[in-house]
Structure formats: C-alpha cells, structure tokens
C-alpha cells in the first residue's frame, strides 16, 4: 500500500517525532509506515489522515500487489 505521509508531513513542515507525538505512537511507527515496512490499522490510518488534514483515500492507496 502506497502512502503520501512523507509528502504531507513536508507540506505541513512537521517531523516524524511531532507527528508521532500528536497521534500517540512511536517515531519508529511513523518511519515504518512511510517506508512501507508496516501497514497501519484503520484507526491509525484515520488518525494520520485527520492530523495531516487530508482525506484517507488520498493518503493511502492500494497497489495491484495488495
């Protein structure tokens, strides 16, 4: 699953640490999601979309291999 977290984070000029603190997860989790090492749960995906002020369908996109 592709995601645009890194792009949106850059747009809002927030670090991985800041984003992690805002949604209550560790920095490693944000890093893992951004680098497609981990697929978040629906709840975490919604939290990310809300914090980054974008639609969840825009933030996450299914790939053919998923």
């Amino acid at each position: 699953m592709k995601n645009l977290i890194r792009v949106e984070r850059a747009r809002l000029e927030i670090s991985q640490t800041d984003l992690a603190e805002r949604i209550g997860v560790s920095r490693q989790t944000i890093y893992a999601i951004e680098n497609n090492k981990f697929t978040p749960s629906v709840m975490l995906a919604f939290k990310l979309a809300k914090e980054l002020k974008v639609d969840i369908n825009y933030l996450f996109e299914l790939e053919d291999t998923d």
Binding site: V25, S26, Q28, T29
Partner: peptide
Amino acid sequence: KVFDEFMFK
C-alpha cells in the same frame, strides 16, 4: 510508555 501497534507487531 507509548503503546502502538507496530511495537506490538
């Protein structure tokens, strides 16, 4: 300290 699903995994 910080519970998250990735650490759980």
